[in-house]
Every structure is written in structure tokens, then in C-alpha cells.
Amino acid sequence: MTCKEFEMWMIDYMDGSLSREQRERVDAHLQKCATCRTMLADEEAVHAELHQLPKMSCPDDVIDQLLDAVGDDTDSLTDRIRSWFRVEPVWKFGLAGALALALIVAAIYIPYEKHMATLQQTEYTPEEIEQAKSDIELALAYFHHYAQKTETIIEQQVLSEAALKPIKSSIGKAISNFPPI
């Protein structure tokens, strides 16, 4: 193992995430190389000090503010990341759309079915049509009867008016010729 390779593996060595074989190779190198042993000791000391520092949590908006300040196109990135976890609106929209579509279909289909049922009902039997025909004939007969009756009344009134006219006029004349009292 070279010192360069050790530098690459050092962090994993410290974390204990190397395989047994890799770890043995690193150990063999450290026995031979004092420079790398010093470098590892320094790194472990820094890590030890960092672990002693109190743990702090980063407020959510700090990341946004930081990314805004950097001026990166990070809004879309955070939005994208959030959108992975925020699938609800999509589902909501989909569900709402499906529900609305179902209601629209129902609103059109149910009355259509009713209308079709009504149309089927209006397939009258020959007896019903025959009865309706005789009803219509009766209705027209009644219409004719009353129209004619009215005509007779009018005729009578006109005739009686005509008959009375000369009498009325002669009475009128008689009255006008009568000497004033």
C-alpha cells in the first residue's frame, strides 16, 4: 500500500467500515510508515475534539436562506426534494378529478337512462293509440260543437238585431215626431 492509498482509506479506517483484508493492509502500512501514523493520530485527535462539541440542530429555514444567499437554483432543488415527499396534492387532485368525472358521468348517465326508460314507456300499444285517436276525435267534436253553438248564438243575436233595427228606428222616428209637452 502506498501513502496515497492510505490517505484515501484513512477515514473509512477510522470509521471501521473497511473489510478485514483492507484493514490488515492499512495496519501493515502503518507499521512501516511513520508519516502516515502521525497523519492518522492528528486526524483522530481532531475527530475526538469535534465529538466533544455540543450537538446543534439546524433550523429548516436556515438551509433555504443559505441556498438563497448563495444564489443557486436551489429553490427548485428543495422544492423537488420536498415534492418527493409531498405527493399528497397530486393524489388529492387525481382523486378530486376522478370523483368529479364520476359525478359528471352519473349526472349525465342516470337521467339519460331515465329518459331512455321514459322513451321505452312511450312505446304505446296499438290499443292506447287507438284510444288516443278516439279521444282526439271526441275533443275535435267538442270543439266543433261549441264553435258551432257560439256561431248560432251570434247569428241569432245579429238576426234579432237586424229584425229589431227597423222597429227601433220607427219608434225613434215616432218619438222624435211626437209634439213636446
Binding site: A96, G97, L99, A100, L103, I104, A106, A107, I108
Partner: peptide, 9 residues
């Protein structure tokens, strides 16, 4: 959408 659907219904 709900309004339109209810209106149609």
C-alpha cells in the same frame, strides 16, 4: 370541481 359536479348533478 365539486361545484361543477354538483351543479351538473
Amino acid at each position: 370541481l365539486m361545484f361543477v359536479a354538483i351543479l351538473l348533478l
